[in-house]
């Protein structure tokens, strides 16, 4: 790509799904190794290295700035979990922190010019499925299997299909909300770049392709990515503590 191409911008709008790097067959099921998965590995590796560096050589006194950041992060997540779910849910904090980080970095990776991990519907869907399993296992643990099943015919047996639908709607709405926000940001950004390129071509000066995309990116990537990650973990915690009869809050 030449520098002039960079200033000219994109020549068309082309929104595609994640690229498939290779695919193999296991027992009749096609497993695709996609762009999404590889970028996830990059994120995981980076996060692991960052965390290992942050928590290296920790001391009880005269702590370094790295350690202060690590302690602040842990205390913040613990505080968030305790506030929304109660003290006994503290063990879930690492999962909440990991999910938040994975989600926010998965969205922000688009700022490096890569495809957002969260712009692949399967990613938020997998997370929503984890939340779904947590909700129902907590429900069974709280009410017993009988009480849990009885909940589906509450208040009258006719409600059974609607109750099942409402339970299924939870992960679907969670994953679609996350996916939809990120992907719409991606589409709008692409359209905007295309429109700005057209203006640039029209007036012959790369005025609009400099600066405006950065401001747009600030909202659609940074703010939206943060908001969706936050909403996702808050909903996860809210749904779980909702069915947890022993929650302190």
């Amino acid at each position: 790509m030449k520098i002039t191409d960079l200033f000219r911008g994109s020549d068309g709008v082309d929104v595609k799904g994640p690229g498939v790097l290779c695919s193999f067959d296991i027992g009749g099921v096609t497993i695709n190794l996609t762009e999404t998965v590889v970028l996830s590995w990059v994120i995981i590796l980076a996060v692991t290295l960052l965390l290992a560096w942050l928590t290296k050589d920790m001391k009880t006194r005269n702590i370094s700035k790295r350690q202060a950041v690590a302690e602040w992060a842990v205390q913040t997540v613990y505080g968030l979990v305790e506030d929304s779910m109660g003290k006994r849910w503290r063990p879930i904090a690492p999962y909440i922190g990991a999910l938040f980080t994975f989600s926010i970095l998965g969205s922000l990776i688009s700022m490096l010019g890569l495809r957002s991990v969260t712009a692949d519907f399967n990613v938020p869907l997998a997370w929503a499925l984890v939340t779904f399993v947590m909700i129902h296992s907590t429900n069974i643990r709280t009410n017993g299997l009988g009480g849990y099943l009885k909940g589906y015919v509450d208040p009258i047996p006719v409600m059974l299909p609607f109750n099942i639908l409402s339970e299924i709607a939870t992960p679907v709405s969670m994953s679609l909300r996350h996916f939809g926000n990120v992907v719409s940001g991606m589409v709008i950004t692409s359209l905007l770049y295309y429109a700005l390129s057209m203006i640039t071509k029209g007036i012959g000066v790369a005025l609009c392709t400099i600066g405006i995309p950065a401001v747009m990116s600030l909202y659609f990537d940074l703010f939206s990515g943060f908001m969706q990650a936050f909403i996702f973990i808050m909903l996860t915690m809210a749904y779980i503590s909702n069915v947890d009869g022993n929650a302190e809050v």
Binding site: I31, F102, A126
Partner: peptide
């Protein structure tokens, strides 16, 4: 892949990654 598709492989990989 298609823009909006459910891909079992990606879901499994994402679960493992998570």
């Amino acid at each position: 892949l298609d823009f909006l598709t459910i891909d079992v492989g990606t879901i499994l990989f994402t679960l493992i990654n998570t």
